[in-house]
Structures are given as C-alpha cells and as structure tokens.
C-alpha cells in the first residue's frame, strides 16, 4: 500500500525536481497513513541514496545493474513496475522530465494505472482520489479523478515547496529481472550542454525573443542568466530561425516551464508563448513597445531598449 517515488539522477546526484517528488510522495504517504519508498536506477553513492530520507523517503530501492547506468525510459519503467509490485504500491510519483514523461506513459500501460500527467497540487483523498492538473498548456486546470486501483502522479516543477530534515533512508539493493526487449534502442550519439543550468530544472529563467535582432547579441542574455544562475530560453521564432537550439524554445509547442522567475526580453507575448510560461511564479517583461501584449500577463514591466536594460540589470545583480 506504500507510495513509490521514481528518483532521477543527474551525474550521480538526486535531481532537484526529484527531491520535490520525494517530498510530495512523502506527503501523499502521510495522508494515506503509509510510508514513502524511493526507487533509483543506475550508479549512485550510498550516501547520496540515503539522502532521499532528507525529503521524506524511509526506504530506497537501488537497482544498480550496470545495464541501467545509461538512462533508459523503457527499462526504468520496468524497474519501477517491479518495485511497485514488490512494495504493493498503489501510488507512483515522478517529477516530469524528458525521461520521466516517457516512463510514466509506459508505466500507465504496464500497471493499468490512471495517470495525472501534469499534477500541480497534492491529491485530495477525502472522496476518492482527485488531483488538480494543468491542461490546455497551462491555459486551464482540471480536477481529475483517478479511478484505477493504481495511480501515477507526474508532477510539474514548483508543485510543492520542499522542506528538509536530517533523516536518512535505508538503502536496499533491488535486482528485478531485466527484459531484453527494453534494450532495443541504441543511442549512437548524445549532445548535451554542459555546465549550464538545465531549463526544465531552473528556478530562474532569462528568455529572449526577436527583439534581440540576431544570435550574435545573445551575450547580454547569457550575462544576466549567469549573474542570476538562471537558465536561458527563447521564443519560437528565435528557435525557428536557428538563432538558438530547439531545447531552449518555450511555448505551446516547446518546453513548458514553471520557474520562480521568468524574465522575457524582446518577446511580444503571443498567446502560444504565454501558454508555455504562465505558470511561472513571477514574470518580468522588458520590451520597447509599450503595447506589447505580454505586459498584460506580467508582474513587473519595463518599457525600454533591451540592449540598455539587460546589461544594467546584470550589473545590479552583480552588485548584490
């Protein structure tokens, strides 16, 4: 009857979004009067695994088979399904990511589980199992009843504010039988930006649009992002023009973000762009056009030239 949380690693460390998932799962477990168990696949230090306890997991199942060292959504989904069976878990929690999204779907099929794909609050267990989810790309919410015996909650970033304790989790080796069929994909090449803050994980995002006039001008965006330890993002036209890579494109057909702070420079704010960013806690818009529709959806606005304003903001952050 326990709650199971899939914990994703990044270079051997528990990802920040997974810390949130553990905390969220532990809260659900508390309401259900049960315990929270984390499941981790791939290589990790025992001390890092035990740290799952800081966020509320009492136990960590560690699937350390060398075949799992490379992230593999299908194999990981099989590991989590096996863990759910072993633990008799009726709720599985994951933090949304490119890996977890693919896993959640396979898991829903494997466990015949009802999946809330964009949960944004703790579930209400007072009458059945209901959870608030984000739909229409952030333009609306649905109160979704999960009616199957097993429930999967894939949570968006910033669904819950985490708290830490000094607790440690007990770590158990977990060695489910692996299925050859899960290893049919061959990764032939990986390109990944290193050293940068990953956009879906970022608490702060500095985004820019066509108002920057060309890719050669992105230095002022990167400078502000660096000063803030923020991720950089862009609008769809900028990614379509190849000024910036596609994985930085936020909006209806790009990445959906929900950071604490989203700064938009030189982006007019088409409804498709707003859809991807409107669950951000605080939105700042900088645009030289006072009529830019984005100002209507912003918390703070500056009508001004981005080439003047961005460097001044960077200096002000550096002076803090």
């Amino acid at each position: 009857m326990s709650v199971l949380i899939f914990v994703e690693l990044d270079e051997g460390k528990i990802k920040k979004s997974s810390q949130e998932a553990i905390f969220y799962g532990a809260k659900v477990a508390e309401t259900m009067g049960t315990s929270a168990t984390a499941v981790v696949a791939g290589q990790a230090d025992q001390s890092e695994l035990a740290a799952a306890g800081r966020f509320g997991a009492t136990k960590v199942l560690h699937a350390a088979d060398g075949k799992l060292n490379e992230p593999n959504g299908m194999a990981y989904a099989s590991v989590v399904a096996a863990a759910a069976q072993q633990e008799g878990a009726s709720v599985v929690v994951l933090a949304k990511s490119s890996l977890a999204d693919a896993m959640a779907a396979r898991l829903a099929g494997k466990l015949k589980a009802g999946l809330a794909a964009n949960a944004i609050e703790l579930p209400d267990l007072s009458d059945g199992f209901q959870v608030k989810t984000s739909i229409y790309t952030g333009k609306a919410f649905a109160y979704t009843n999960l009616t199957a015996d097993t429930k999967i909650l894939a949570i968006k970033k910033n669904t819950i504010e985490t708290e830490e304790t000094d607790a440690t989790a007990t770590v158990e080796a977990f060695s489910p039988a692996l299925n050859d069929g899960d290893f049919g994909l061959k990764v032939t090449n990986t390109e990944k930006a290193t050293g940068d803050v990953l956009l879906p994980e970022a608490d702060l995002v500095v985004s820019a649009g066509r108002g920057l006039k060309g890719p050669e001008n992105w230095g002022i965006v990167e400078d502000l992002a660096k000063a803030l330890h923020a991720a950089t993002a862009c609008s769809k036209p900028v990614s379509d023009l190849d000024w910036r890579p596609h994985h930085e494109h936020v909006g209806q057909t790009g990445i959906k973000v929900s950071p604490n702070l989203y700064i938009a420079a030189g982006i007019s704010g088409a409804i498709q762009h707003l859809a991807g960013v409107n669950s951000s806690k605080v939105i700042v818009v900088i645009n030289k056009d006072p009529e830019a529709p984005f100002f209507k959806s912003a918390d703070y606005g500056i009508v001004g030239d981005v080439f003047d304003v961005l460097p001044r903001l960077t200096k002000a952050v550096q002076a803090l």
Binding site: L115, A142, Y143, T147, A148, N278, D299, Y300, G301
Partner: peptide
C-alpha cells in the same frame, strides 16, 4: 477508462503589472 474529469477551472488573473 482510468480517469475522469470532475470539473475545470481557469487560472486566477495576475495582479496588475508594476511598471518600472
């Protein structure tokens, strides 16, 4: 089916923008 929607809701509008 494994899920049903009980009801929908629109996001609360943001407060007025503070211009600087």
């Amino acid at each position: 089916t494994l899920t049903t929607v009980a009801s929908y809701e629109l996001p609360a509008p943001r407060g007025a923008v503070k211009m600087i």
